[in-house]
Structures are given as C-alpha cells and as structure tokens.
Amino acid sequence: MLEDTRSLRFFNRGPSAVARLIFFSVLSLCLLFVDAHYRYLESTRQVIAVVIYPFQRLTALPGDLWHGAAEYVSLQRHLVAHNEQLRLQHDADAAQLRQFEAMLNENAQLRGLLEIKQRADYTVQAAQIVYLERDIFKRKLFVDIGAQSGVEAGRAVVDNQGVVGQVTRTFPWLSEVTLVTDKDNVVPVQVVRNGLRAAVFGSGNISEMELRYQPVNADVEVGDELVTSGLDGTYPPLLPVAKVVRIERDPAYPFAHIVCAPLAGVDRHRTLLIVSAVPPLPARPPANAAEEGVGRKKSGKRGYR
C-alpha cells in the first residue's frame, strides 16, 4: 500500500508552483511585448471579445434590471407627484377663471345699468340683492336699500335687460321685491310690432309668463316683444318685459294660451335698479263726474224741447 502511494507520487510529480508562476509570468510579458509592438494578437483579441460578449451581458443583466427597475419606480413616483401638482394647479386655475368670467359678466351688467341710468328720463337707485325669499313658491327677493334711502312700495325694479319686478314692502334698510314671474304679479304691456295693449301675468315659474285674456284671433305672433305700456303709473313706458315663445289657439276656448319668457335677468344678476320717480300721470276724474255730465246733457235737451 505504501509502495503504491510512493509510485503514484513519483509519476505525478511535475514543476513546482513557483516554477510554473515564473514561467507563465515570463510568457505573459513576452506576449504583451510582442502584441504591443507587432499587433499579432489583435484578431485573436477580437474573436475572444465576440465569444465572451454574451457572457458579459448575461453577467451584467441582473445589475441592469435592478437599475432599470429602480429608475422606473423613481420616474413613476415623480410623474405621479407632478400630475397631482398639475391637477391641483388646473383646479385652481379653473376656479380663478370662473371668478374672472363672473366678474366680466357682472362688469358688463353694471355697464348696462350705468347706460340706463345716464339715458333714462327718470331717476334710479342701485341696489344689491341681499337674500331670496325662503318660500320656494314665492318669487321674491330682498335688496339692501329701504325707506331710509327713499324707497317706497310700488316702485319698479329693472336691470339692463328689462323689468325685474316691483317693490312690494319696505323696511328701514331693506326692501322686498316681487319678481314679474310671481303668480300674483301683473304688468300692463303692449306688443312692439303692432302696439296691441295687454297684460302679462306671472306663472310662478321663473322662466315663464302668460299673456292672458287674448282672443283666439288676436294679432300676436311667436317672437313678439312685449314692453311696458306705462298706463298703470308704476312702470315707466317702453321697458322690455317678455318675448312670446309659444301660442296655442283652440277654437273650443275663447282665449288663446300665450306663453312668454321674461327678458330681464330675474334669476341671474346681483345688482338692480329701483326706479325712484316716474313722471306723474294726470289725476283721474271723480267717479260721479261722468254721471253728472250725462245728467246735464239730458236736462239741457229737455229744456230745449
């Protein structure tokens, strides 16, 4: 057994590790010298590089995947945060834009009110809407001027587009305004096209009024504009009130069903004008004056006979 081990060591014996290190070091230096001066191993190097390139990419793949995943997650977080910031900015800009649009509309309405105030033959007072009537079935609102500012019940209320309503009650610093669309409100009007006199009634609906008691054959057409006639002593004449939008004529009924739409911003504007004074109408004659006149005529005729 000992002899077999000694014979195996004898036949497997070769150069020592130091000798092999020196040999391969000298060989490497020679190859480096030859390659540096004569470029003999350039093609060999390229072939080896091509052969080992897939292995290099394979060994670098886990690192590349990890780096790509980390970069994707970071980019995703940045995009989410940026999108959230843009969304908040968009909401803020949209709100500001709506405020600007509201201010532009209000400025346009105020300019219209100023033009009315400058060209009107009657005096007006500007008033701001304070709040609306709590009862949803009543078309009323309250403005910020009252008896202390000279406002009286019965005064007309208008905006830059037409008649809004009428002052029905006054308080020291507030006034109640009943809109033209209230079911108890009536406005004497006339048709612009032909001068036909009529009365338009509120329907209780904020967007509808009715031209009542007109015969079936009345000369009223869809699109006709109705203005105040000024015969009631409350509303100044020729103020826009409504426009005819629908007519139903049924021979079975004596009157036509005429639906109108108010022209004023009864549910939109915040600033209104209260007509402070209207040119007074001549006083009505006494109720018995006509009877006395008829009696005198009859007595005169009898004496003549």
Rank of each mutant, 00 (worst) to 15 (best):
V200Q: 10
E3N: 08
K298W: 01
K298G: 09
E210P: 09
I206C: 04
P215M: 00
L211V: 12
V47W: 15
D159G: 08
F100R: 07
R246L: 00
E291L: 15
R155G: 03
D121A: 12
S299Q: 14
P285W: 00
A70T: 04
P188F: 00
L174H: 10
V157L: 09
V266W: 02
K138T: 06
Q190V: 07
A69Q: 08
P240K: 01
Q125E: 14
I48G: 11
V294K: 15
E42D: 15
S7A: 07
T5Y: 01
T59M: 13
Q190A: 07
H257V: 01
A17I: 05
E248C: 04
R296D: 11
S28C: 11
N205D: 10
T228I: 13
R9Y: 04
Q109T: 13
P240L: 00
A256F: 02
V294M: 01
V18E: 11
H90D: 03
Q85H: 12
V192F: 04
G195P: 14
L132P: 03
A289G: 07
R119H: 08
R111W: 01
W173P: 00
S28K: 00
Y40G: 10
E71H: 10
G165W: 08
G14E: 07
A264F: 13
S28A: 10
P254I: 11
I258R: 11
Q85A: 07
I52N: 02
F24C: 10
V192W: 01
D4V: 00
Q125R: 14
L104G: 00
G165P: 09
R302Y: 12
P254W: 02
L132A: 09
D232T: 05
I116M: 02
L29G: 13
A198P: 11
A156C: 09
A283H: 10
R98C: 01
E152L: 06
A198G: 14
I22S: 12
L231T: 06
V73M: 01
N83D: 13
R39K: 14
L65D: 01
